[in-house]
Write a protein that binds this DNA or RNA. Sequence first.
DNA 1: CACATATAGTTTAGATTCTAAACTATATGT
DNA 2: ACATATAGTTTAGAATCTAAACTATATGTG
Lengths: 182, 182
Amino acid sequence: MINDIDIWLERLTSLYRSQIRHAANNEGIQPVHVEILQYLSICNRYSNTAQALSEYLGQTKGSISQSLKLLEKDGYIERNQCPDDKRVTRLYLTPKAKASVKRIANSLMPNLGEAKEASDALKSLLMEWQLKNSHQGFGQCQSCRFNRSLPNGKFQCGLTGEPLTKVEVKQICREHEFHSQS
Amino acid sequence: MINDIDIWLERLTSLYRSQIRHAANNEGIQPVHVEILQYLSICNRYSNTAQALSEYLGQTKGSISQSLKLLEKDGYIERNQCPDDKRVTRLYLTPKAKASVKRIANSLMPNLGEAKEASDALKSLLMEWQLKNSHQGFGQCQSCRFNRSLPNGKFQCGLTGEPLTKVEVKQICREHEFHSQS
DNA sequence: CACATATAGTTTAGATTCTAAACTATATGT
DNA sequence: ACATATAGTTTAGAATCTAAACTATATGTG
């Protein structure tokens, strides 16, 4: 027997995808491309790679690779080989892509960001889910167990030791882990 | 600027789809087919049609039609022309399909149905969303403005006038509308 | 009744995406 | 030096998606 929460989640998912499809149509690109651009607009500087995208969107590397080729051809992204690890190619949004992402964000669920309780509920749902499936990764630094608050009001990543600005602490990171419960 | 709730929703959506994809793999069918079977397992007797599926999943009728053809060939669904309106074909899950749906439900988010607050938050999110986009439809009768509670503990649909059992009042209906806010 | 229009669903063709597997290249560990 | 792991690309074939044309039934109007 399917329970209530599955039904709501199912419906939310379908609705969200419908909206993404519609937004993609308006921009003249594919739904997956919207998701890729969105991810790149909210991920941090450790997480802007094809591999991370593949994990985040749950699709094969090959599929992502093809989408990226198209997005580059159409002037939405730029690629840079990482000097520290030459296997890695970092991805960057062009101004054209940033404008698209902005338009899309405005078209999705206007003014829904205000719903504080809903936001908290979604977060805790996600947390429980990821913990249960030991499917770690992908969350904002501000909710990560590696994140430290410094006395000066700034933040620091306990994994890399690097300082994080107020903007960066809200970005999505591959290495994100929730605080463990018990 | 993308806000928090968009990020959580985005992530929940991606995770959910990953799980569906995985479940579909285990069953040897396509992800869309899982969604179709799930919908048919929770919709009521007015809503088990190709048209409703097309609206619910936000895909073209052609696409749905093709999926249904495959599902019928593989013994997951049966079709019956509706005697009252011969344009309509009603869809029914076979025992094989019901078994699949059961396995899939168990593999998704074990024990997550208990989270009462999360369930409420999702519901109110959905409600706000559907109202804002005047995108009505698809919800459980128990939250519909047409649903009436009878003195004997049973329910009645104000649109069709038909009585609803305790099971039916939890099913998904095409004609569902939330109570309007003001 | 005749006609126009709306709705449910199917079919077709072409573009796109997805997956799986083989492949290149760089890093890491012993 | 060697085995193994990781990042990413390429390829081929299967599946999906969309859009548009099409059939069939219902409904509304003069």
